[in-house]
Design a protein around this nucleic acid. Structure first.
Lengths: 127, 127
DNA sequence: TACTCATGTTGATTATCGTCGACATGATGT
DNA sequence: ACATCATGTCGACGATAATCAACATGAGTA
């Protein structure tokens, strides 16, 4: 319940309280406890951590490029991803791990090769 | 034309070429120059850098929270944002700067106060 | 004018992340 | 069996980013 607030220094918290309470008397838009509670509700919802994970997964130039390529081509193997984005194979493996962990892409093994395609959630991110 | 490829070591490039050329003879899905060219077209399009900037702007817990709050409340001043996300005012200023630079939110000054609201592009990011 | 308040800016610190080399694994082919 | 190939994992390094304290700015106020 106090996770967010605990990240503020106590001096700033004490200074912030009366300042905003005074503001509510003049400007009806400022309301400290209301916004703090609303922010906590949003941050503690089920969708927020998932969405944050997905957004952070595509917040990289190479990974956003991979997602766009998958949207156009449907399915790519790891070597094709490596050729497309121009990094070492260890980096490709790392990026695809981030994308799969976020639920943006889904991996499929076929012999030596690993194929990747977008999940429905991944497709929704690009609409 | 060689920006992406130059990020690979020459040894890996030389090893990758013949490997994929052989693959194209067996698996029709592997095609090195085609994917490299497609990736370059996407990365050099007008929308890609803008989208990357916007996605990176909301790829932070606090900033994603701010964007959600703005979607619900319409407009917030800086002190309300500070109260909601629980960081120092310098950090709030930094986050709002990142969001405005990406075109996700728009700032409006009224006397001492700074009000922020989502841009159409920012609203589109959350749909 | 002097003072307070809301916000922006700067510099430094800390943490996180992208990248790669080296090694491991598991499948394919000779 | 042995070599080769595609991919994964680990450790380290460099770059980037989040955060705050301190200072600066500019508007309202007594």
């Amino acid at each position: 319940m106090l996770i967010i607030v605990d990240m503020m220094s106590t001096s700033e918290l004490e200074a912030l309280g009366p300042r905003l309470e005074r503001l509510t008397g003049e400007e009806t838009t400022c309301c400290l406890p209301e916004y703090r509670a609303l922010a906590e509700r949003i941050a503690r919802s089920q969708r927020f951590p998932e969405l944050l994970l997905q957004v952070r997964a595509i917040a990289d130039e190479k990974r956003l490029l991979v997602v766009h390529l998958l949207k156009r081509r449907g399915e790519l193997c790891a070597c094709e991803v490596q050729a497309a984005i121009g990094v070492g194979h260890a980096t490709v493996s790392h990026h695809m791990r981030v994308l799969t962990a976020a639920g943006v892409v889904r991996a499929r093994r076929e012999g030596k090769w690993a194929y990747y395609r977008l999940t429905p959630a991944g497709r929704r991110l690009l609409s």
